[in-house]
């Protein structure tokens, strides 16, 4: 099963990551690749561009946004056997980062039947 783990708020504006945390995170990411779990990962520019389509009219709004939680700042695409495994890995991630917020969502692949079908 594939999961997209997204960080929507890592409080990095208030608490910039220190060297110790960066080292721990690097080690964690290495461990995730070594265990064959991590498929892709990356950080995102918080100056997002929002596109809204309504009644045939498309509106483009450039960030940054005042509410930190409005955009994704980082993601990891992982492959695990169960959702619980993804949650356990996510817990380890947040133990390193500290305070913040994120979401985990399953990415449907071949063999997964999306709900309602």
């Amino acid at each position: 099963m594939r999961f997209l783990m997204m960080t929507t708020d890592d409080r990095s504006a208030d608490n910039p990551p220190d060297e110790a945390m960066m080292a721990q995170m690097a080690e964690f990411i290495e461990e995730m690749s070594k265990s064959g779990v991590l498929l892709a990962t990356g950080g995102l520019d918080p100056r997002a561009t929002r596109i809204t389509s309504s009644g045939g009219k498309i509106t483009v709004t450039d960030g940054p946004y005042t509410e930190a939680k409005e955009v994704v700042v980082g993601f990891a695409l992982i492959e695990t056997r169960t959702k619980e495994e993804a949650i356990e890995l996510s817990k380890r991630f947040w133990k390193i980062v500290g305070d913040g917020e994120g979401v985990i969502q399953q990415v449907f692949g071949p063999g997964d039947v999306p709900p309602g079908q």
């Binding site: 265990s35 169960t82 619980e84 495994e85 949650i87």
Partner: peptide, 10 residues
């Protein structure tokens, strides 16, 4: 139990 299962797999 599900959490233990996950830890075990990891």
């Amino acid at each position: 139990h599900r959490a233990i299962d996950a830890v075990w797999r990891i």
